[in-house]
Lab assay of single mutants.
Amino acid sequence: MIHRILNHSVDKKGHVHYLIKWRDLPYDQASWESEDVEIQDYDLFKQSYWNHR
Rank of each mutant, 00 (worst) to 15 (best):
M1R: 09
M1T: 12
I2C: 05
I2L: 01
I2N: 04
I2Y: 01
I2M: 03
H3Q: 14
H3T: 09
H3C: 12
H3F: 08
H3N: 09
H3V: 05
R4C: 13
R4F: 06
R4L: 10
R4Q: 10
R4G: 07
R4S: 12
R4I: 09
I5A: 03
I5H: 04
I5M: 04
I5G: 00
I5P: 06
I5W: 03
I5V: 02
I5T: 01
I5D: 00
L6F: 04
L6D: 01
L6T: 04
L6N: 03
L6C: 08
L6M: 06
L6I: 13
L6H: 03
N7D: 14
N7K: 13
N7C: 07
N7S: 12
H8R: 05
H8C: 05
H8V: 01
H8W: 01
H8L: 02
S9L: 11
S9F: 12
S9H: 13
S9Y: 11
S9C: 13
S9Q: 12
V10W: 06
V10G: 01
V10I: 09
V10P: 06
V10F: 10
V10K: 11
V10E: 07
V10L: 08
V10Y: 15
D11H: 01
D11W: 05
D11K: 00
D11Y: 03
D11A: 05
K12T: 13
K12L: 10
K12H: 14
K12F: 06
K12A: 14
K12M: 14
K12S: 13
K12W: 11
K12P: 13
K13T: 08
K13G: 08
K13Q: 11
K13S: 12
K13R: 10
K13H: 13
G14L: 03
G14R: 03
G14D: 04
G14C: 03
G14F: 04
G14E: 00
H15I: 14
H15E: 12
H15P: 01
H15V: 12
H15Y: 08
H15S: 13
H15M: 11
V16E: 06
V16S: 04
V16P: 05
V16H: 09
V16R: 09
H17P: 01
H17R: 11
H17K: 15
H17A: 10
H17C: 14
H17Q: 12
Y18M: 00
Y18H: 04
Y18I: 00
L19R: 00
L19I: 03
L19P: 04
L19N: 09
L19W: 01
L19T: 03
I20C: 05
I20N: 02
I20Y: 02
I20W: 05
I20M: 05
I20H: 02
K21D: 02
K21I: 06
K21E: 10
K21M: 12
K21Q: 12
K21W: 10
K21T: 00
K21G: 05
W22A: 01
W22Y: 03
W22D: 04
W22V: 06
W22N: 00
W22P: 00
W22I: 03
W22L: 03
W22T: 01
W22R: 02
W22E: 02
R23T: 11
R23I: 11
R23Y: 11
R23H: 11
R23E: 09
R23Q: 12
R23L: 10
R23N: 07
D24C: 06
D24F: 07
D24Y: 06
D24T: 09
D24K: 07
D24S: 09
L25A: 09
L25W: 06
L25V: 10
L25N: 11
L25K: 15
L25F: 10
L25I: 08
P26V: 03
P26L: 05
P26E: 06
P26C: 04
P26F: 04
P26N: 10
Y27G: 10
Y27Q: 15
Y27N: 14
Y27E: 10
Y27L: 15
Y27F: 12
Y27V: 15
Y27K: 14
D28H: 11
D28V: 07
D28Q: 08
D28L: 06
D28M: 05
D28N: 13
D28S: 15
D28G: 11
Q29R: 12
Q29I: 00
Q29H: 09
A30H: 05
A30V: 06
A30N: 08
A30R: 08
A30E: 04
A30K: 04
A30Q: 01
A30M: 05
A30Y: 02
S31F: 00
S31N: 05
S31R: 05
S31Y: 04
S31I: 04
S31D: 02
S31A: 02
S31L: 02
S31P: 03
W32I: 04
W32M: 02
W32D: 02
W32Q: 04
W32E: 04
W32K: 00
E33F: 06
E33V: 14
E33Y: 08
E33T: 12
E33Q: 11
E33W: 06
S34W: 02
S34P: 13
S34I: 02
S34G: 12
S34F: 05
S34R: 13
S34H: 15
S34L: 08
E35M: 01
E35R: 01
E35K: 02
E35V: 02
E35G: 10
E35D: 09
D36Y: 10
D36A: 07
D36Q: 08
D36H: 12
D36N: 15
D36T: 10
D36F: 09
D36S: 13
D36I: 01
D36M: 08
D36R: 10
V37G: 10
V37Y: 08
V37C: 15
V37N: 15
V37K: 15
E38T: 11
E38A: 09
E38N: 07
I39W: 02
I39N: 00
I39D: 00
I39P: 01
Q40F: 06
Q40A: 13
Q40T: 13
Q40V: 12
Q40D: 13
D41E: 07
D41W: 06
D41S: 07
D41P: 01
D41L: 02
D41V: 02
D41A: 07
D41K: 06
Y42C: 10
Y42S: 04
Y42N: 15
D43N: 11
D43A: 10
D43H: 11
D43Y: 10
D43Q: 13
D43S: 09
D43K: 07
D43V: 07
L44Q: 12
L44K: 15
L44G: 08
L44H: 13
F45C: 09
F45S: 07
F45R: 03
F45G: 02
F45V: 05
F45W: 09
F45H: 15
K46I: 07
K46Y: 02
K46C: 00
K46G: 02
K46D: 01
K46F: 01
K46N: 01
Q47E: 13
Q47M: 07
Q47A: 12
Q47G: 07
S48M: 14
S48Y: 15
S48A: 15
S48G: 10
S48I: 11
S48K: 14
Y49E: 02
Y49P: 05
Y49V: 01
Y49M: 04
Y49R: 00
Y49G: 02
W50I: 02
W50L: 02
W50C: 03
W50H: 03
W50Y: 06
W50F: 01
N51Q: 14
N51Y: 09
N51C: 07
N51V: 08
N51L: 10
H52G: 14
H52Y: 10
H52T: 15
R53C: 12
R53A: 10
R53L: 12
R53K: 10
R53I: 07
R53M: 10
R53W: 13
R53E: 11
